[in-house]
Design a binder for these strands. Structure first.
Lengths: 197, 197, 197, 197
DNA sequence: TATGAATGAGCATTCATTCAT
DNA sequence: CATGAATGAATGCTCATTCAT
């Protein structure tokens, strides 16, 4: 970022641009998105866009960081409740949260997650992963008897990646073969089964 | 395909171009790949490329079809053995097959699978899915007692998508947190656990 | 026109590009004219050209419209005098006007009129025709005795097309067999003779 | 021409290519015509085309020469009758001949004449002109009393160019304002009037 | 700060022409 | 002689980025 947006107005601007970027990508895809589109959508000129971002890629970076942070925030928000309930219910809650996040604003975020190749998404997913792992470890500490610790890391990795990926894949499908609740329930079953292996 | 050049040589050419395309994408990413890159890589001129493909997109289409068909072929090849062994071992075999496919030629195919957004990958994945579903149903018919039919469809969907996605994600990771065998074993456990729910 | 840049400067720019286009076509012919040529001639970059015109064809369209309008304007300008004098003198005046128009700026406009096939010139010529017809009808109303009305339409068509075409043909000739004044006088005679048939 | 097509087969080939060229231009316009189109239309390969013509331009040259020669031939064919009849009837006959020529083969030749700018049509038209002038002088010798010799050259020039151009313009018009016979009669009137000035 | 006109490198694509078979 | 695959220069056009106002 070219300048530290210390002032409130600047922060608003940066956010507007990010939102405009997400909107554009959701509407026209990554390759259909130009800096002018984003600027127009944000109601500013290209010049102004470049006052807040070094280049197009920087906007994309911020977009994905924004998405990542928002997820992490929403996970944080439900953590207190999660740790109170059983594992399967917790997973269920997380999946609903995720699903809601991906679909809000007409799937604005979902589209971004489909461009795995372009964004170096892996690094960002790791942040989400860490949050999820922390949540899981809270549970594990409370129910140590349910867990085979040596397999723990691998199974958590599988559960998390599977859950996210399958959910995204499902939501991207224009004609899914069954309803969303069934999928989420199935994923929760999968998670529960995995964690007890 | 624009015109049908003389059979055998032509088929070689088409294949060379597809391979060059995969190579380029693996090396420079989708947006870093130009028709000239591909032509150069294939050791031909742009003009020649356009004698065999209508446009750049057609090359991409063929690349993904090629990848898809190759996977399906390799799944077909191991089907006879799969049906003889228990479910978990079957999944293990499939995962090894997949893993081998994604990594061959220096991960040439792996990169393509990361551009889910650009290619209409879903349709192609469905073809793979169908093959896997067929293999699964062969098993199910032989061991009907293990299966809860009502959940069958959902769980198969989850197992397949999770397996593929997690594998791709893992292989894309430059510094994975554990070794590949552990992941594959874990995925097989997951699959086995899911199918018995 | 792609976007409306700020009024006055923009109008200048558009006009500069049109003039550059006419120049290029006059110099290198239609097929020898590229967007870059035009941009260079106008002293701008290709990008700028495309900021003012949707595509090459749009430049051509504007060129021909410009030419057409300029002719119509110059015809309008001499109309008041025309109606005061006899028919032959009027035709003479018009031909001089035309001749002057086609030769100004080193024959910039003349060349355009040679590419009848490419431009849908007919539609534009019809606009000129209408203007000429109107001027003729003014004359006719004043001298009704001279005219055989049933043949009027055909003869006007012949006189106008013949006059324009022959003039263009003559001016395009690098080594014409007699001087221009003789041709124009001849054409005026022709017109006068035709109108009295 | 690369080789003198002494053999009959070669002459046929050359002619086939020219006809194919005319066809293509009539169908797709000058800029829509490629060497491959012409070769395909002629039922040969591009390579073969280049065995008979140095380049594309040479084909075009031959096309226009062909058209020119054919007109001249047809004028020659009616010359004996022309000289027997009065001037206006002669002009009428010539115009009918022309009109027929331009419209035959679905306007194959008409289209060529619309690309005045591209072909250096002037030189070819001069050949036609000479033929017409010769025919006219035959008439003049038989009816010296009708002619004002000093104006002769100019008026002939006007009559010929006007006649040809107006005819082409009329035939190119998709919705002409009156029927063809009226135009031709009008043109004949014009010619007769001009020659007696 | 904000603007948006100007830039020009870069891309996909075409097509006249050649030449090995 | 005929073929048509191969060539690559050339074209129209886009879009990230800059900079004078």
């Amino acid at each position: 970022m070219r300048r530290k947006p210390k002032q409130i107005r600047a922060k608003r601007m940066v956010d507007d641009i990010i939102q405009a970027g997400l909107q554009c990508v959701a509407k026209n895809g990554l390759e259909g998105t130009t800096t002018r589109h984003i600027a127009d959508e944000a109601g500013i000129s290209v010049g102004t866009l470049y006052q807040y971002f070094d280049d197009k890629e920087a906007v994309y970076q911020s977009m994905i960081e924004k998405a990542r942070d928002e997820i992490v925030q929403s996970l944080l928000a439900i953590t207190p409740q999660i740790v109170q309930i059983d594992f399967r219910s917790g997973v269920l809650a997380i999946l609903h949260e995720f699903s809601h996040f991906l679909e809000k604003d007409k799937g604005r975020y979902l589209k971004v997650f489909q461009y795995v190749g372009h964004f170096e998404l892996l690094e960002h997913i790791r942040v989400i992963e860490m949050q999820l792992t922390q949540m899981a470890s809270l549970y594990v500490m409370r129910h140590p008897e349910d867990v085979a610790p040596e397999k723990m890391q691998v199974m958590l990795y599988i559960v998390m990646n599977s859950g996210i990926a399958t959910l995204i894949r499902y939501l991207s499908d224009p004609a899914p073969p069954f309803d969303r609740e069934a999928l989420i329930e199935g994923l929760a079953d999968m998670a529960a089964a995995c964690i007890q292996l």
